[in-house]
Amino acid sequence: MSEEVLRTEHVSKSFGRVTALRDASIQLGKGEVLGLLGDNGAGKSTLMKILTGFHKADSGKLYFQGKEIELRSVSHARALGIEPVYQDLALINELSVYRNMFLQREIMYGGVLRILNDGAMRERARDQLNQMGVNIPSVNVEISKLSGGQRQAIAVARSVYANAKVLLLDEPTAAMGVRESAIILNLIRRLKEKGEVSIIIVAHNYAHIFDVCDRVNLLQNGEITFDRRTRETSVEELMNLVLHELRRAKGDIRQS
């Protein structure tokens, strides 16, 4: 594997008596795309929230670029280059694409009034989106005029532009049609070709994960039960694992 960017070692987290995450160890190489699969309540979002600095793990270690770190907050994680892209996307519908991309990082002429340099922002946003192969009518259109896939792409592009080293995508293709999902999957492929950003994708859609991920991890009941390169496994193998787990769970219910 190439240079390691992010690694967790035996991370556990409980909420009261519920153990959300048990002994989870994952690693992510530079430029690698890791898919995180698992049922609702398997611990995916808990793991993601630990990686974004939102939750603190009860035990276990976190390494970023080879060094052990402790994430103090979401903004601390973001300052390091760990950028979550949430489902609500944090985009402002009423603002244009380029103003959204530069929100809180505006290019300004300076002065007391902090006048915006729209020309420079427009140009850089256009460049960035072209480079990433994101197709939109113009960077001047309001976000509200874009489709779900395009919005997601803008949110990802914004994070990449913010110098993200690790992108955490939470259900990036949820509730999207084929065409919309294609926009996102293409974007992820592009980023993978460039190899500068590492990505963790949480998804329910097995086909999408196998389409773009280098490696897939399966979370079941708070534990990582499966970790393999997508090339060396198949949707069927994973399905069987999950079905087996389901049958076992049903068996448990019958026994009790």
Binding site: A90, I92, Q104, E106, L113, R114, I115
Partner: peptide
Amino acid sequence: KTRWGLHTIATGGNPLGAAEV
């Protein structure tokens, strides 16, 4: 044309999103 105005629109348009950024 200023950052204040931009952030004012962002605040009303999507308070949660604006705060996250």
